[in-house]
Simulated scan of single mutants.
Amino acid sequence: MSEVKPEEISHPAMEQLQGFEYCIDSNPPWGEAIILGFQHYILALGTAVMIPAVLVPMMGGNDGDRVRVVQTLLFVTGINTLLQSLFGTRLPTVIGGSYAFVIPVMAIVQDSSLAAISDDHERFLQSMRAIQGALIVSSSIQIILGYSQLWGIFSRFFSPLGMAPVVALLGFGLFERGFPVVGRCVEVGLPMLILFVVLSQYLKNVQIREIPILERFSLFICIALVWAYAQILTSGGAYNHSTEVTQINCRTDRANLISSAPCPQLLTALQLGLQVQLHPQLTS
């Protein structure tokens, strides 16, 4: 029998890193994989809903336009995640919408040429076309940097001390969209926040059949419990005499996402139209 080479010896994930049970190439049982996948979907759903909820009204879009953007984000997120899982690094991540683009998109939406359009639907279409063009150009630059390995060369000059302030400033810029939004409905948002921290951090060692249920599925459990709690408040009439703003933020039947959703249709590239415009200052 030939001698086993050191690089051919494999060790379980728990022996390599404390607290890890699965490596990148590991495959959880089907039942657990389905639940974890659905939990990742819920996490992506929050991002896919929050970004359009902030940006689409600024563009002049209605509930139907917001639903259409949410559907597009979810569809593209699924395709990107599938490609990343099959041909990419296979990291346990969902390739979805990024908050890093929110501030640049807001700058595009607030451009004077778009703000001058009186018709809301036309302003939404023009804004989406401008945004999709900017995203195509920016993503092309990222592809070039990635495949040419230029980013790997430049990253050697980026130290954690230099990158930490950049990430922190990005997070601070979006802080007003975080906890203050949760505070719009304290009786629902605050219990969700507290319950998630307690289950994922303080009760993470609770195991059922040697599976850390509360740590691994804390998000799924919290959303189910808090949604049921919010539904009880809505059905019980807790917000019947509240202000309109409170009802929109707290009731479970005021989002208008499902009722405004169009029939399923095949998404196509440049579905909102293709339009190339030169800036007036460049043509004068």
Rank of each mutant, 00 (worst) to 15 (best):
L169N: 11
L169W: 11
V137T: 12
L135Q: 09
G173M: 15
S148P: 04
L219T: 05
I211M: 09
V137E: 11
Q231F: 07
L199K: 02
I117P: 01
A228R: 11
S148V: 08
A255T: 12
R254Y: 08
R177H: 15
M192D: 05
Y239H: 02
Y229D: 02
L203N: 06
Y239K: 02
I117D: 01
Q142N: 12
S140D: 08
A115L: 13
Q132C: 08
V197N: 11
R184A: 10
G171R: 10
A224I: 13
A168I: 13
Y229F: 15
L257M: 14
R123T: 05
Y202E: 10
I213C: 00
E215L: 07
F154P: 01
Q231C: 10
L150G: 06
E176D: 12
I221G: 02
L193P: 00
M163N: 09
V206M: 04
Q247A: 09
A115M: 14
I221M: 06
H241T: 14
I153P: 03
G146C: 05
G236S: 08
H121T: 07
H241N: 15
I248M: 10
Q126Y: 08
L233K: 05
L150W: 12
E122R: 08
L203V: 07
E122K: 13
V188N: 00
E210V: 05
A115F: 04
Q207K: 15
I213G: 00
G189F: 02
L190H: 06
